[in-house]
Design a protein around this nucleic acid. Structure first.
Lengths: 215, 215
DNA sequence: GTCTATATCGGGATAGAC
DNA sequence: GTCTATCCCGATATAGAC
């Protein structure tokens, strides 16, 4: 629904859809690969969705694998850009951490397909394709996060004996798991945040900062 | 390495490997499906690993999909059994929660293939195969966990305003994420728990109970 | 129950016209 | 750059002997 929806005849020179063929192919491939995974998507399906012939796909990309890599690279680039915004924030207390968590989660949800693609590559332990690419994005985010936490710690905002790397993993995991399981959680009883990421973030930060034990 | 390793000629009647053909096929299918996913595994590969012919596989199971479902059912059954042990525990304080978390994580790691198979089915949002099966296992675990947390709360061990369902999600997510990402984390700097789940559990429970903020 | 063919279909990829 | 037609191969599944 997203990409192909905004066709809107632009009185462009050689007409048809938005962008040239290659762009449309990349967009179609992103959607399909992200949702169904590499080997459940046929080049035929991509060509159909992009509105071109199968042979044309092979004209732009020398193989299906090549197309996949291009798609992944693009997804990584966009994901990285959404990262830059976060490192610039500056505020008091764990408020900075709170904002980081909320924005990270919202960014994942906003770029759903890209996130799905990258996560698939990172978490499926297949040695294949280009884990290295996706892993870099993951690592980048992790290291930024560790930096933020370290800074909070150096300001004396964190309890002694807290391991910044562990907290970073915990935060990343909380958001990744929300992203992966929000659909299932909608079927579960007593959950009021499956469709409201901000509420999830809020509850998480409360527990993270204060713990669940009695004071 | 696990299943087929313990061959050990048992002087059985019609010789060959352990169990009848069907059991061997199921075991082989579990390993392959869990590691590579449904559509990257050919029936040929399963037959080879099980030491039977391809046609024989189709004799026992009417289709590849049927075999997959049988494999999944088996994995769900075993996973559920490892659950029973946990609901019986009884101790003071959040110690029960601590034990639950540690045992749950260790159980996942012990039954790696089964866990991988079930998780794949639950978290890949594909409508396909038999999500319902795997989702049930997930839901069971979730509800037991909520029960444990509620009990802790009723004993006054939890701070007011804590949402048990949220905490249950948080705990589940922490263990699932560890399971998924422990391999990647080994490549990351400053992480000392990637190969030591108990340490992970320990750190997690510390943060969960006490928070990271200064007292 | 187990095997050796074999049928059939869909996938990726190429050739060559326009 | 884009198409139609085709090649080739591996995958699921079946037939029928033992």
């Amino acid at each position: 629904m997203p990409h192909t929806a905004t066709v809107t005849a632009l009185s462009d020179h050689h007409a048809r859809n938005e962008g040239d063929g290659m762009q449309r192919i990349l967009a179609a491939a992103l959607d399909l690969f992200a949702i169904h995974g590499f080997d459940q998507v046929s080049v035929n399906a991509i060509a159909d969705k992009a509105g071109v012939s199968k042979a044309n796909v092979f004209h732009h990309f020398k193989s299906k694998n090549d197309l996949y890599l291009a798609t992944l690279r693009e997804a990584c680039r966009e994901t990285r850009e959404s990262l830059d915004v976060l490192s610039g924030t500056d505020g008091d207390i764990g408020e900075r951490l709170t904002r980081y968590m909320r924005e990270h989660l919202l960014a994942m949800l906003r770029n759903e397909q890209e996130t799905r693609l990258v996560l698939r590559e990172v978490l499926d332990n297949s040695p294949g394709k280009a884990r290295a690419l996706a892993e870099d994005v993951f690592k980048d985010r992790f290291e930024i996060l560790v930096g933020v936490i370290r800074e909070c710690q150096s300001k004396g905002l964190l309890r002694d004996g807290i391991d910044p790397a562990f907290v970073a993993v915990m935060l990343t995991g909380a958001n990744v798991f929300y992203f992966q399981s929000r659909e299932i959680m909608r079927h579960f009883p007593g959950i009021d945040f499956a469709t409201e990421p901000e509420r999830y973030s809020e509850k998480f930060m409360d527990v993270l900062l204060n713990g669940i034990g009695v004071k």
